[in-house]
């Protein structure tokens, strides 16, 4: 059985998900998530180690497409949607941190 989710867990998860929470939000979300996860204890407690997981309901495999060039989007149309663009590229504030 998993341990009850803590305020620190929620803060960590928010950070992973790039969400900023203030103190009051942290409290509310922690209580709500604990409530939902508490309900999920019914399955967390199931002894089903020998059951295979199902990630997807379809039995399909090997769906492949031919290597044929198709249409690309109009660049102006694409960049018109960008919050900021320069030199036909998407512009963002300085990037800190490593690319994994």
């Amino acid at each position: 059985m998993a341990e009850r989710i803590t305020r620190d867990d929620v803060a960590h998860v928010a950070k992973l998900a790039r969400l900023r929470l203030d103190g009051a939000e942290l409290d509310t979300f922690t209580a709500q998530l604990a409530n939902v996860l508490g309900h999920a204890e019914d399955i967390a407690a199931l002894d089903i180690d020998d059951v295979a997981p199902t990630a997807h309901p379809l039995p399909l495999k090997n769906v492949l497409r031919a290597d044929v060039v198709g249409r690309t989007l109009d660049r102006d149309e694409v960049l018109a949607e960008a919050p900021d663009a320069e030199s036909c590229q998407f512009r963002v504030p300085p990037i800190l941190g490593e690319e994994p």
């Binding site: 497409r65 290597d67 044929v68 060039v69 198709g70 249409r71 690309t72 989007l73 660049r75 694409v78 960049l79 030199s87 036909c88 590229q89 998407f90």
Partner: peptide, 25 residues
């Protein structure tokens, strides 16, 4: 000839953001 998951050209050195489509964007 094309990208892994879409039909955009897999080509080096083209003008920026020309080989793009909804999938690879």
């Amino acid at each position: 000839a094309t990208k892994l998951f879409c039909a955009c050209p897999n080509r080096f050195g083209d003008e920026p953001n020309t080989n793009v489509c909804p999938v690879c964007l």
